[in-house]
Design a protein around this nucleic acid. Sequence first.
RNA 1: GCACCCGUAGCUCAACUGGAUAGAGCAUUGGUCUUCGGAACCAACGGUUGGGGGUUCGAAUCCCUCCGGGUGUACCA
Length: 539
Amino acid sequence: MALAKAAGKPPRAVAELLVAGLEHGAAFSTPEIAGPGFLNFRFSEEWLADRLSEMSRDERLLVAPVGSPRRLVIDFSSPNVAKPMHVGHLRSTILGDALSRLFRFLGHEVITDNHLGDWGTQFGMLLYGYKNMRDDEAFRLDPVRELARLYVAVRQQFRADEDDDQASDPVQDACRAEVAKLHAGDPENMELWRSFMPACLEEIDRVYRRLDVRFDHVLGESFYQPMLATVAAGLSSSGIAEESHGAQVVFFGENEPPALVRKRDGAFTYATSDLAAIAWRLEKFNPTDILYVVDSRQALHFKQIFEVARRWGKTSARLTHVAFGSVLGEDRKPIKTRDGKAGATLEQLLDEAVRLAGETFDSHGDEDDASIPGADRAAIAEAVGIGAVKYADLSQNRVSDYVFSWDKMLAMDGNTAAYMQYAYARCRSILRKAGVSTESLSRSVPKVLIGQPAERALAIHLLRLGEALHAAAADFRPHVLTAYLWDLSKAYSAFFQSCPVLKAPDPLSRDSRLVLCDLVSRTIRTVLGLLGIRVVERM
RNA sequence: GCACCCGUAGCUCAACUGGAUAGAGCAUUGGUCUUCGGAACCAACGGUUGGGGGUUCGAAUCCCUCCGGGUGUACCA
């Protein structure tokens, strides 16, 4: 129909010409013209069967690595390490990790970098709190906990109305002064900063291990700090930045607010350190792309620094802000953690998810097999609980706000991780009982037969894996993958319902259906794996 | 004020970026049921895609304009 526009002919007439001129082999029957000019092809059973045999032998499930790999730096998670991680860090971490896995699988080169907030105002609060309110014994026993307490305690001493930016706040001023001293290289504050860091890093690492998230680099703001003066000087000497009201700023269009490179008090801003990071990454990695998996409230910031980078001549990589919506509470209001009363840390949240998954397992789980030891039960609860948290987030279009809901997240019905994991476990159970494995099947793949409609629907869906992966990667949208999984598992359920495998009418269709089960299980495991979610053999 | 994002079934969300009769899950109602794993399956109900104009073979999608929500907006990061 797009052709019709160019050719200036009615779509159906173009379709008829196409059909008449089309040579087709054994892959599909003569296409039918439908509706305003659609062409409907019908794959032949033989062709589908051949593709599935091929897929069965292929470790990559017929998804070829891309011909021209890109090199992507993916900047995600980036928590402020001065306080424990909370739900707000979840989306960036989970989305960024899933995108990293996806691009790697497609054959791209991926460099993950966690741009920690380890040099900002919040450290001023820790320094101030440590100097004025610390509990030495508590700090010795559990430095992370004590630092977290200090953060909240300092925060509570700030004036209530932060909208009133005219009035100066003595505590806030003191915190700023501590940061300024740190940035100026004050020995005492530098030493304290160094002593805080190991505990802060250990704290976030524990969460990353549990989430199964890894970074190639962890280069926080402090890493770029020595480069900032040079960056700022360069921007001024090239005329990109100018002085205004005592600060160094970059101006944009009439209606656009300026970007601050250097504040009136001489301190640099995060725009400066982000620019330093761009320059450094271009030089160090020479990437084709830099992705910033950061929530949409930063949209203006990224628009500005991307524009500055362009003027600055840093144009060798495509810079993309992969934005996502805020995490909202069940009251549909943003979850606030600044006041410290938000309570749940990310770790407590994960504990709760795992606990609830364990409860469900105990009441619904594989009871005819009481031989599953406690350690395995714990591992299952962990995989299902963490998977539920990740999947709930990833299955939603990233641009919309995300309503955090225990009920939705841990529901074991519908489009959830547990449902996929369950479909996987069912496949595996059948294969186990049949005494076959992926290895034995792919050594000599039994002939695949596509007789039943449910088999046909399942076959077609399996063969669309590559399409789903590329669609998800093209727009950085993992929810395309969850949608694919959901459709696949529904097709599998229909197949499972109408096509007995172990009790198949004859050995040939039994073997064929075992191949389908194996392919479904491998596809689910692969795609869940790309989302950072584990499968379990039983649940 | 200005800028960006969003508005789709009662609720939470999709719709392959302009294609066929706008689809799923919850919820509700009815059914399947001696489980190759019931954490299952099948079906029904539910819509003027916020309103109104426009562009064309064709619009949830693109343009204009209202209405309603969210976010950001010079010294936090």
